[in-house]
Design a protein around this nucleic acid. Structure first.
Lengths: 231, 231
DNA sequence: TCATCAATTTGATATGGGTCAATGCTGTTG
DNA sequence: CAACAGCATTGACCCATATCAAATTGATGA
């Protein structure tokens, strides 16, 4: 695999738990892989064969019903860990939303390596606990929020996610950003239909809460109003 | 604390990762506590001061909006671990649904101990990953299933949960069981109103899919039909 | 420049589940 | 035992969101 020395996420991914000797050992087991937008990396209900770190790009984790309804249950960004370690099967699919690069490992190899490196497992545990917190917050959104609350919460979430770290350590939310999601994908994330998502977006645009320079771009005009709407 | 030797969940809780010397050390840090039905153990947005193992009883994890809407985001049964280790704050409340007994630790003490015992952290990681799987399956239910699908899925879930292990290692789902939830709590779990839950229950009763011997008891009459309805 | 196609938006209508209000149970207490 | 309190059920009605259908936009390439 290409050297971890130049890896974009070397110090943010769970790899940060490892020293140079250890990372060399892990590196020997993995390989880089490019995934084009729309391509699947992991299939629901399949054997859990691989796990990976996201280097670049955005991926969705989804579950589907027999009749084709889909729910996005997680989104992975650079430095995030994907796949299901310590289990025979994966209950979710992983599909690239944008072109992406990942650093993949055979799950068996990874499991063995992780068990021998408690610091790595600790990082994975912290990440998994944080993901569980986010997931639970999203359950509240899915179960108890209205369409306009869902949309407002989603937009604030995106704005924070794509915000920049300024000169200080303070995190500044993005005033303008590009969605990695189509309208249908936003619907699958929020438990709505594409039509409802579209209508809510135009409503916010008419009310001058947001601007929509193009289909994928969002400009936050009235952040305060959004916060109110998010409930 | 009362000895772990006689603990009901000694070999099922994360404690199973520890040998006798280690368990003695952990035991010295913890204490048993009884919680009566309705009593809170952890408060949303409060400092994460304690974590615990459930010994007996059932507890709910919830998040709420400012205006009082509630969503149950998890349910803890005997041998489950509750609380948020490795974080200053807890984003969920934990409230007993039935009278319960738990084995509590100061979070700080527990965090320190866990970092010194990789086997314990490994068990916690496996548990957290499994809980994340369950939570994601529940997101699909909240975002994409209809009321009757939600109810059917819930009843099957309960039936499996309260099923008994027969002479073989096979798990047999319960044909009859007592819900640890009121109708309102079922509603908070499924993202419905109490009225809709009630109507769906009587519908299933009329259709002879289930029987309702009393408010809290359920008898599964036509499991096949339930499975169909669950989607 | 125009044709084509997919994604999105908009419109008309339907409906599942919510809201509000009344009634019925069940278990508890004086 | 009667009175009460707290669930739970039932009924009537309504509305937010889904569904179905058509129009519009924007990108791509012939």
């Amino acid at each position: 695999m290409a050297s971890c020395d130049t890896c974009l996420v070397r110090n943010r991914a769970i790899c940060a738990a490892l020293d140079n000797r250890e990372i060399a050992a892990l590196s020997a087991m993995g390989r880089r892989r490019s995934v084009t937008a729309g391509e699947s990396l992991i299939w629901e209900d399949d054997d859990s064969l691989l796990v990976a770190n996201v280097i670049e790009g955005v991926l969705k984790m989804t579950t589907s019903t027999a009749d084709g309804r889909e729910q996005i249950v997680g989104v992975a960004y650079p430095s995030d860990f994907i796949g299901r370690p310590f289990s025979q099967t994966s209950q979710t699919s992983v599909v690239a939303l944008t072109d992406a690069r990942v650093c993949v490992f055979s799950r068996n190899d990874f499991d063995r390596f992780a068990r021998e490196h408690p610091e790595l497992e600790h990082k994975l545990l912290e990440r998994t606990l944080a993901e569980l917190d986010r997931t639970r917050a999203w359950m509240m959104l899915l179960g108890r929020k209205t369409a306009s609350e869902k949309i407002a919460t989603f937009l604030l979430d995106m704005s924070d996610r794509f915000g920049n770290v300024g000169c200080t350590t303070l995190h500044v939310p993005a005033q303008r950003f590009t969605l990695p999601f189509s309208r249908q994908q936003v619907a699958d994330l929020l438990g709505l239909t594409i039509e409802t998502v579209s209508r809510q977006f135009t409503r916010l645009k008419i009310d001058r809460v947001i601007g929509l320079p193009s289909r994928r771009e969002v400009e936050v005009i009235d952040r305060h109003a959004l916060t109110e709407l998010a409930g």
